[in-house]
């Protein structure tokens, strides 16, 4: 690693390998003449035609709004709930079997229930996204709140930091790294449920578009949808990581100094 030439080579390698993969796909698909795998050049051309910007308002924005709303509701509900469960042994004991069971249900299996009760509109989709996102944040909040360092809590007691102040300044910040871990899991689940709910019950949205393209054998269009979903997944993940780095700057610093 100390050799600068080697470092440059490694960075080149990081760029070169993905580039090679894309190039290979490009060349192979151009000559493959396969119905399922149209040339990459054609997919990209169709991508521009399809998504810039005609369908953005129609399909992309509504999808993302539902995702954001479901995710936000889940976070807003599960952090206070998780705090109560984390602080009270009795409440935790009483609700544990129910939580353990409901969260074990594979999320898509709840979709028929949601359709039955809420119909096929936006409410249903936001509901299902929120329900699914709830568990990772909730469980991580409970763990985070329970795991607050004993000395920190005693410090708060000695200096009479109590009530909401104690939650805001001591308990929540201490639990935040874990809460963020839960939110990260939830965010990828939200995207998955967004797609599934649109595939099963919608006439709009990216999920609907991909499946509809496949059904009408518009294969390049289908591929552009898959690419777009991949891109969204990547961007959501990267965006969240950015926020996390900002908010938990102290956490990385504290951990790095503890490891020394």
């Amino acid at each position: 690693m100390r050799n600068p030439l080697r470092r440059v080579l490694l960075i080149l390698l990081e760029v070169a390998v993905p580039a090679a993969v894309v190039a290979a796909w490009w060349v192979w698909s151009a000559n493959a003449d396969s119905f399922y795998f149209p040339p990459l050049a054609e997919i990209l051309r169709t991508f521009a035609d399809t998504w810039v910007f005609e369908r953005v308002g129609n399909d992309v924005v509504p999808s993302l709004v539902r995702l954001g709303a479901g995710f936000a509701i889940a976070v807003a509900v599960s952090i206070p709930l998780g705090t109560v469960l984390g602080l009270s042994t009795v409440v935790r004991r009483v609700s544990e079997p129910i939580i353990e069971f409901v969260r074990a249900i594979p999320p898509p299996a709840l979709l028929p229930f949601a359709i039955l009760v809420l119909g096929v509109g936006d409410t249903m989709k936001i509901f299902i996204i929120a329900v699914v996102c709830l568990w990772p944040v909730l469980l991580n909040t409970i763990d985070g709140v329970r795991g607050v360092d004993h000395t920190m809590l005693e410090t708060a007691r000695v200096y009479r930091v109590r009530g909401l102040e104690r939650l805001r300044r001591v308990v929540w910040p201490a639990a935040l790294p874990q809460i963020f871990a839960g939110m990260r899991t939830s965010l990828s689940l939200a995207l998955i449920l967004m797609v599934i709910s649109e595939m099963v019950a919608s006439t709009r949205g990216i999920g609907y578009f991909v499946l509809q393209s496949q059904r009408s054998f518009d294969i390049p269009e289908m591929w552009t949808g898959i690419l777009l979903l991949g891109l969204l997944g990547y961007l959501l993940n990267a965006g969240f990581a950015l926020v996390e780095r900002r908010v938990l700057r102290w956490h990385r610093g504290a951990r790095a100094s503890a490891l020394q």
């Binding site: 000695v158 001591v170 956490h251 504290a254």
Partner: peptide
Amino acid sequence: EQVGFVFQEYSRSLLPWMSVRENIALPLRH
């Protein structure tokens, strides 16, 4: 209220998300 306490485990008694200033100011807020 008349008692101040200094713990042995300083690294766990100070809150890592607060600066020195904020850590010291925390008990004074009320």
